[in-house]
């Protein structure tokens, strides 16, 4: 997704020479060409995220659309108050693009895992929070953000992500993107972020157990995607899957929405447990340890269906 992001930035700067890209001294091998071609539009602000976010606010106040780039929690939680007071309160068009969503930086350890950010940023008024599943969703999310004048968060994974969609339509509104549909589905699985790349394994495992499910990707965490389609299909069970804390994230957003309805499907939220990852390991290993492998996701769905 990172390469897609740089390509989108390059296209955007050619259209709008006022666009700025700031990095907190990260992105080796990624931004060199952009920086050489557009030196006026690129600043390496050093290892100082509070300043980077403040400078971004200042540039935006003076008329620029600004993107800031870093990894993990650094450009969000390290400088959360700059996001709250400087960028969001003033409703400035600053977007933070973060590599290493969830536990994508696996063995680097918990310091580099972005596992609570969806929850925390979602509480900031005016903030648009997005976790695209693949490069094609990223492209549409990027375009969506560029049509707004508001703060935004774009969560990437770690490069080399699978392409899940061909010919994706523009996101004119926050939408769910179908990944796998079943005409007699009684279960909806809504996956948020790159973890949606597991959808084919999940679909196959559910089919083998004779469970009929529609699987969607939701790149939008805030604003929430339009759920009228999901509700009209009268699923018995709605499952959310995200590589983010079980507290406050995408699934919580759906739960908040459902809590205002008289009738809604039973909800199963699958997310990271409320504890830190203390061990090293590859991304897949850590996902499995946290109960987020395709197999463990399916087991949770099967168990929940016993309540139906």
């Amino acid at each position: 997704m990172r390469n897609t992001f740089v390509r989108k930035m390059t296209e955007l700067v050619r259209l709008d020479p006022g666009v700025m890209l700031l990095t907190g001294d990260l992105g080796f091998g990624t931004f060199e060409k952009f920086a050489a071609e557009f030196p006026e539009n690129f600043i390496n602000t050093g290892i100082a995220e509070q300043n980077m976010a403040g400078v971004a606010a200042g540039l935006a106040l003076d008329g620029h659309r600004v993107f800031i780039y870093s990894i993990g929690n650094f450009p969000t939680l390290r400088c959360l108050e700059q996001w709250r007071n400087d960028i969001c309160y003033h409703n400035l068009p600053v977007t933070v693009v973060v590599n290493g969503g969830g536990m994508a930086y696996g063995s680097l350890g918990m310091s580099h895992h972005a596992t609570e950010v969806l929850s925390i940023l979602r509480t900031l008024p005016g903030m648009q929070v997005m976790a695209p599943a693949d490069p094609s969703e990223l492209e549409k999310c990027f375009d969506f953000i560029c049509r707004q004048s508001a703060p935004g968060y774009l969560r990437l994974c770690r490069g080399g992500e699978k392409i899940l969609h061909a010919g994706l339509a523009d996101f004119t509104d926050p939408v769910l993107v179908p990944l796998c549909m079943d005409e007699i589905a009684d279960t909806a699985v809504i996956m948020c972020g790159e973890i949606a790349s597991l959808f084919a394994d999940i679909a196959a495992a559910l089919q083998s157990r004779d469970i009929h499910a529609d699987i969607y990707s939701s790149p939008f965490v805030k604003p929430l995607p339009d759920l009228t389609g999901v509700l009209s299909r009268k699923y018995k069970l709605c499952v959310t899957v995200e590589e983010n804390s079980c507290i406050g994230g995408f699934g919580s957003g759906i739960a908040e929405y459902f809590s205002g309805l008289a009738v809604h499907p039973l909800l199963l939220r699958i997310a990271l447990p409320d504890r830190y990852c203390q061990v090293a390991g590859k991304h897949e290993f850590l996902r499995d340890a946290a109960g987020l492998s395709a197999e463990k996701i399916v087991v949770k769905i099967v168990e929940k269906r016993m309540l139906l």
């Binding site: 976010a53 403040g54 400078v55 606010a57 540039l59 106040l61 003076d62 700059q82 400087d86």
Partner: peptide, 8 residues
Amino acid sequence: PVAAGIAY
């Protein structure tokens, strides 16, 4: 920091 961004 914000002022520095404006000045830049």
